[in-house]
Write a protein that binds this DNA or RNA. Structure first.
Length: 819
RNA sequence: GCCGAAGUGGCGGAAUGGUAGACGCGGCAGUCUCAAAAACUGUUGGGAGGCAACUCCCGUGUCGGUUCGAGUCCGACCUUCGGCACCA
């Protein structure tokens, strides 16, 4: 009578019906409490691989669970659609980036539908469409108005052959361009920046959020807050107006140990201070370091070298003359671009001093130090020596004392620096949101008025492999009139970093199709902040940091009222294949489509959740899928096979079986509910497997009534429905229940019914398990203590010994301790 | 080098300081079949003893420690993975 479980027939059927019925359409005016469950939207690379499923299927299960628990759940999906690969494809295969991207969107949308998730597609966001990027541009203008977007000169990676700027990630080890292999150099270019550093301190806070320590640490490292002092060294040189060089140090207590000063080669003072006899040497060194990429310059392998520029400054603390050097290990962009060299107490300064025979005086005494020379830099704690009035102070107190002294004398002050730099958002690319700025000879930088947005990407741009933005050569795009004075003017031809698009996509989901604003403020107020955000940890310091900054920036403009956009951030692990991360370039991509047509979406969903803890991920190995297929088949047969209770059965057996069934059912509800709440999907599936195995035995025993049996099947299907939405919908219908299972409520367990009646009491002797006794759960401590020593297995251990102590753990064990 | 996470059967993994190995894969044995596959049932950490029910010993990367009791807590080390890497 039963048809076999055939996911290939069931899954498309229900997906179609759910879509036709708009079963998963989300309302904003729902009286139930809201729950915003967001999963990172995919980049439109062309195909979804099994790693995407790993991100999305468990997230969907959790969202479905919350939905059944009575929340109004928003679990949307969209596409991160601007970016470099589209443009590279355009150049390589002469296909327009828009066509390429939208083809990918169509394919990926089809793949995403096959997962069987509760995505409300009427809220879909595609970042490369004008009705979206119009508002990306609008946010740029807001940031500009707020003084958070500015144009500045910055040293960037420059490929001389491609004639373009490269992001750090596009520079290969050794400083080669990833596209053409040319040696990348440094160049100063006018670029647009967002002032993320203004929020550095608040970005370290994570007010009221649940984030993993791992990601927080990564962001903290990236922000790199350092406390110390800025110290002024006196300068007296005829060709420089400046009378000082300022340095930043985290160790003001070591200032008496300064034996040289190092400036970054690009430092503005270098040209003024270099003496004529050193000029050639200095210029050569600067040229040499300019050729290196920043990545290469910062390589720890590179030997520290530098050039003395012939001039001295003065250490005001001890009145000593300090020679000024330049070296490329000092970065212009960090601190003041100048460093005081304290070779005795800094490893880099130590090797530098060794190389150039500079003195290495000790000013912080290591423990048991007796005036000998150091074999290596000593960076640990110690007492100040050779430091005049500060001698004898422990180094922490020394820092404070030196800072007080500096501030009193006006020679310096306490200071904080960050590793974090302002966010460079200019990209010399076509396929991104245009930066809505016009350059006018008379008015200078003029923002495009809001009413003229969007600045549209011209469709007929030419994609020649010049390595330059096609916009630069598009006359109609570039040439415009100044919005302020109407004189001829030129448009900005750079586009924005795509991370700007993903800064606000989660706001757009709340207000699909809103054409009068980026979002409907009321709806954002209702849905935000996001209750749970899940995605890969590879975005820890890019997207997740940028969008936190962005949220704080628009909060300060009064556009939104939350401090943190992502209340609970969860990073799932990655699925690797052939011991490597899956990627197109490695050619080890696992396509879910084949598996969908072979075993069905429900099986893949379940398998991905079962294979490991979600935060851990693991190797893709399809040999285990059969276990899931078998299990779902067993469920199919278990639910559809007729149940026949035995007529003549003894009442006691019947009662016992009924109680046991009810207890196990409630225990399972509890376990599954708790595991889902904690995103422990693997153990949740295991619990459901155990429950199924148990129900198989119940069915064979035929001891419970049909009604009790049906109730347990009802619970099983509900508990299973987030995990295998198609299978359970089919079984729900086939057993005559009311459509749809996905509108049913989540089962609730009764703690009293879930309680065990009998427990296994473990008897230990000196901590080793020697016996197990089945006892009523209600056993008292006295009963347990009395029971244990009388057990035949325990008695032999007790002869000739005295029990000195008995440990009792309620419901668990009795431990007899003796000598 | 620094920071973070993790090391448990043949494999993926499970275990609020309290029965190590749940659940699944694989293996082995069986049922069905002419046979095989599929499916189903049983069994499965290692070792020793016993006809047997069973009993004992060892066992969670290594070495110590805390504790009546440690996979779990503490210290040192080893290995793997991830991140940062001259940030003054």
């Amino acid at each position: 009578m039963t048809v076999d479980y055939n996911p290939q027939a069931i899954e498309p059927k229900w997906q179609q019906k759910w879509a036709d019925d708009q079963l998963y359409q989300v309302k904003d005016d729902d009286p139930r409490p809201k729950f915003y469950a967001l999963t990172m939207f995919p980049y439109t690379s062309g195909d979804l691989h099994i790693g995407h499923w790993y991100a999305m299927a468990p997230a969907d299960v959790h969202a479905r669970f919350k939905r059944m628990q009575g929340y109004n759940v928003l679990h949307p999906m969209g596409f991160d659609a601007f970016g470099l690969p589209a443009e590279n494809a355009a150049i390589k295969r002469s296909i327009h980036p828009f066509i390429w991207t939208m083809q990918n969107v169509d394919n990926m949308r089809r793949q995403l539908r096959s997962i069987g998730a509760i995505y409300d597609w009427s809220r879909e966001v595609v970042t490369c469409l004008p009705d979206y990027y119009k508002w990306t541009e609008w946010f740029f203008l807001k940031l500009y108005e707020a003084g958070l977007a500015y144009r500045g000169k910055a040293p960037v990676n420059w490929c001389p052959r491609c004639q373009t700027v490269l992001a750090n990630e596009q520079v290969l080890d050794g400083g080669f361009c990833e596209r053409c292999g040319a040696t990348v150099s440094q160049r100063d270019l006018e670029q647009w920046f967002f002032r993320i550093t203004k929020y550095a301190d608040e970005l370290l806070e994570y007010k009221d959020t649940i984030w993993s320590k791992r990601v927080k640490t990564m962001q903290r490292n990236w922000i790199g807050k350092s406390q110390g002092a800025e110290i002024s060294f006196a300068l007296d040189h005829p060709s420089a107006a400046e009378k000082e060089i300022r340095v930043f140090t985290t160790r003001p207590d070591t200032t008496f140990g300064v034996t040289f000063m190092v400036l970054a080669p690009e430092h503005s003072l270098v040209a003024k201070l270099a003496t004529p006899d050193k000029k050639t040497e200095v210029e050569d060194y600067i040229a040499q370091s300019r050729r290196l990429s920043e990545i290469e310059r910062l390589s720890t392998e590179k030997e520290k070298d530098g050039v003395f520029i012939g001039t001295y400054c003065l250490n005001r603390l001890n009145g000593e003359k300090v020679p000024i050097w330049i070296a490329d290990y000092v970065l212009l962009s960090y601190g003041t671009g100048a460093v005081m060299g304290v070779p005795a107490h800094d490893e880099r300064d130590f090797t530098f001093a060794r190389k150039y025979n500079l003195p290495i005086p000790v000013v912080i005494a290591p423990p048991d130090w007796s005036d000998e020379e150091l074999a290596e830099a000593y960076t640990g704690p110690g007492t100040m020596v050779n430091s005049d009035q500060f001698n004898g102070l422990p180094y922490q107190q020394g820092m404070e004392a030196v800072c007080d002294w500096l501030e009193e004398k006006g020679w310096g002050k306490r200071a904080i620096t960050y590793r974090l730099r302002d966010w460079l958002i200019s990209r010399q690319r076509y396929w991104g949101a245009p930066i809505p700025i016009v350059y006018c000879d008379k008015c200078g930088i003029v923002p495009v008025p809001e009413k003229d947005l969007p600045v549209l990407l011209p469709e007929d741009a030419e994609f020649k492999p010049t390595g330059e933005s096609p916009l630069k050569y598009h006359e109609q795009f570039v040439n415009t009139t100044c919005p302020r004075c109407s004189a001829p003017a030129k448009r900005e031809t750079d586009t924005m970093d795509t991370f700007m698009c993903s800064n606000w996509y989660f706001l757009r989901y709340t207000s699909p199709g809103c054409d009068t604003a980026a979002f409907d403020a009321n709806k954002v107020k209702y849905w935000m902040p996001i209750d749970i955000y899940t995605g890969g940890a590879e975005h820890a310091v890019m997207h997740l940091l940028y969008s936190r900054f962005f949220s704080k920036a628009i909060r300060d403009m009064g556009l939104v009222d939350f401090d943190e956009p992502f209340q609970h951030m969860f990073n799932q692990g990655i699925i690797i294949a052939e011991k490597q991360k899956m990627s197109k370039s490695r050619g080890n991509v696992i396509t879910p489509d084949d598996y969908v047509s072979e075993v069905g979406a429900d099986t893949i969903r379940t398998y991905l959740m079962f294979l490991a803890p979600w935060e851990q991920g693991g190797e893709w190995d399809d040999s285990g899928i059969s276990g899931i297929s078998r299990w779902l088949n067993r469920i199919w047969n278990l639910v559809l096979g007729n149940y026949h209770p035995q007529e003549k059965i003894n009442l006691d057996t019947k009662q016992k079986a009924t109680r046991e069934l009810s207890r196990t059912t409630h225990q399972t509800i509890k376990k599954v509910t708790e595991d889902l709440g904690r995103l422990h999907f693997n153990t949740m599936v295991a619990a459901l497997m155990e429950f199924t195995n148990y129900l198989g035995k119940v069915k064979e025993a035929q001891a419970v009534t049909t009604l009790d049996w049906e109730e347990s099947i009802d619970t099983l299907l509900r508990l299973l429905s987030p995990t295998t939405p198609h299978l359970t919908e089919e079984l729900w219908q086939k057993t005559g229940r009311e459509y749809s299972i996905h509108n049913q409520s989540w089962p609730v367990w009764d703690e009293a019914l879930a309680k065990d009646e009998e427990i296994t009491l473990v008897v230990q002797v000196n901590g080793k398990v020697r016996d197990r006794i089945t006892v009523p759960a209600s056993i008292t401590e006295d009963e347990a203590r009395q029971l244990a020593p009388d057990r035949p297995k325990i008695k032999p251990y007790l002869t000739d010994k005295t029990v000195t102590k008995v440990i009792y753990v309620p419901g668990k064990l009795v431990n007899l301790v003796m000598r």
